[in-house]
């Protein structure tokens, strides 16, 4: 049964007004626009998957968005900081030149030339005693370039990763302003 409008008390009209505003306001927000413009930013869910899923390369669209959007890069770095097991921060301001060694949380990471002298380098990660070996390394640079690498199982306590010396990963590793994240 419907109460005539004129018989509604002020209080009920006010309730009805608030309910209508909430309900129809939701309609206005959710009414589907067919063929709407694609989202201007990646979803946070996509960032999370990109940051935390080992073995899955960084999607190209996310990589481009991180290069173009400093605020998104800040969110991505914060997400990595909060979700990674080990965060190797930027080197001290005094540091200059290419870094070959970085340390944090008991982990030691080094880049050493391959003995074969064929222009390749090893990234060596020493896993502390009692720690589960990390499965993923992400290196983030201030300009938004991200290197993401799935790590092989360690031999003993050392994870070895062979790369060309001019590959993006060793170059990002050497930058004092880069941050490293082990997960």
């Amino acid at each position: 049964m419907s109460t005539p409008w004129r018989n509604l008390s002020d209080e009920r009209r006010e309730r009805l007004r608030a309910a209508f505003v909430a309900w129809h306001g939701a309609d206005l927000l959710l009414e589907a626009e067919d063929d709407a413009e694609p989202p201007s930013r990646p979803l946070f869910a996509e960032l999370f998957a990109a940051a935390t899923a080992p073995g899955r390369p960084l999607p190209a669209a996310i990589g481009r968005a991180l290069l173009a959007d400093p605020a998104l890069l800040q969110d991505f770095n914060l997400l990595l900081t909060r979700t990674a097991r080990v965060h190797v921060p930027r080197a001290a301001a005094a540091a200059s030149g290419a870094l070959q060694r970085r340390e944090a949380g008991g982990y030691s990471l080094r880049v050493v030339p391959s003995r074969a002298g064929d222009g390749q380098v090893y990234l060596l990660i020493e896993v502390p005693e009692g720690q589960t070996p990390p499965r993923q390394l992400v290196i983030s640079t201030p300009d938004g370039a991200i290197c993401k690498e799935e790590l092989p199982p360690p031999a003993g306590r050392t994870i070895r990763l062979l790369k060309d010396a001019d590959d993006a990963l060793p170059r990002a590793f050497a930058r004092p302003d880069s941050e490293l994240f082990l997960s």
Binding site: M1, S2, T3, W5, L8, R12, E14, R15, L16, A18, A19, F20, A22, W23, H24, D27, E31
Partner: peptide, 20 residues
């Protein structure tokens, strides 16, 4: 939709007041 919502609120106003 606006008319649909108003119609229902007028019919079921008391039970929907929790949104208010």
């Amino acid at each position: 939709l606006a008319f649909l919502r108003l119609r229902r609120l007028l019919l079921e106003g008391d039970s929907l007041q929790a949104l208010a």
